[in-house]
């Protein structure tokens, strides 16, 4: 409920006074409360939510067509759409998306597995914590992008440094969140599990890991977000295919329309993976008291 609704519920509305007047003597200290359904049809939520972006695009179009926004600075939405259509028709865009997507997913698979593995190790054992946690906490403060020169020296300029960068960047959010999730499992549930006769492995499987799952999914969401960021940086390293390559090429020829198309593609890829995480949450977290998704 929004603040305006609360205010409406408690402030004496004028129509309430007239309604009270019709059914009896009006009392200044009484207020008739209107149920939400009687407050009249309002603009549907989806319509309200789409208004903002639509207005923005309209302004952009207006600025481009009147010449306030020159095409060398930013191409208009019409040009962007037509160049997107051209890129799709030639198959360039799809090919680039497939390449970029597989880079991001390969990097995430490698980095994510490493992050989760290390988190489980340091979350579950004292020895693991002592060995793993301190270096991880230190390394996570190093900006990943600053490692690009090193990665190029180590892995050359092919696919390897790009994937390594994504793997490095995605390992940390998963590590931190899974570790926090494991350590944050309700101690009383672990105790209950022990009294029920669960073995150490049983506790891990039935109590600790399911208890850490909400945090793990938060970590996955961060990691996916960072995977795209790392991808953008990674694809600046001498790419010969992928969305980043399309962008670098477009930069050479001042094709701002193609750059915008690529930006939109990045945005949609980000949205798509967010949708994947939401779906995972819907499937795996329906037991949560705070869960309202389904």
């Amino acid at each position: 409920m929004s603040i305006t609704e609360i205010a409406r519920g408690y402030a004496p509305p004028r129509e309430a006074e007239s309604a009270a007047g019709s059914s009896g003597p009006a009392r200044a200290d009484l207020v008739r409360l209107t149920p939400a359904t009687a407050r009249g049809a309002r603009v549907p939520r989806w319509l309200r939510r789409t208004t903002g972006p639509v207005v923005l695009v309209a302004l952009w179009h207006l600025a481009s067509s009147t010449g306030i926004l020159p095409a060398e600075v930013l191409a208009g939405p019409g040009t962007v759409l037509s160049s997107a259509a051209k890129l799709i028709e030639s198959g360039e865009l799809q090919a680039a998306i497939v390449v970029s997507m597989s880079r991001a997913m390969t990097g995430l698979a490698i980095g994510g597995s490493i992050g989760v593995l290390l988190a489980v190790l340091s979350g579950l054992t004292r020895l693991g914590e002592d060995m793993v946690d301190a270096p991880m906490q230190m390394l996570r403060t190093v900006p990943n992008v600053a490692l690009i020169p090193l990665l190029i020296i180590w892995f050359g300029i092919g696919e390897a440094p790009k994937i390594a960068l994504i793997a490095l960047a995605t390992a940390f959010p998963l590590y931190l969140n899974v570790y926090a999730g494991i350590r944050g499992v309700d101690q009383s549930l672990i105790e209950a599990g022990r009294t029920l006769g669960l073995s150490r492995w049983g506790l891990v499987r039935h109590v600790i890991l399911p208890g850490a799952l909400p945090n793990a999914l938060v970590g996955l969401r961060y990691s996916l977000g960072i995977a795209w960021l790392a991808l953008v940086f990674g694809e600046q390293i001498n790419a010969t295919a992928g969305v980043g390559y399309l962008m670098a090429n477009a930069r050479e020829f001042f094709q701002t329309d193609v750059i915008v198309v690529c930006l939109v593609v990045y945005a949609f890829l980000g949205l798509a993976v967010d949708l994947v995480v939401r779906t995972l949450e819907r499937i795996f977290l329906s037991w949560r008291p705070s869960f309202t998704g389904a």
Binding site: L189, G193, T195, L196, G197, L198, H206, P210, R288
Partner: peptide, 25 residues
Amino acid sequence: RRAIAFQAPRLMPWKRVWRNVLLGL
């Protein structure tokens, strides 16, 4: 063979009730 019931029920929120009952058997 002991069993404990605590002040809070301490059911595992991620397991359906019948699986909670059988947990640890």
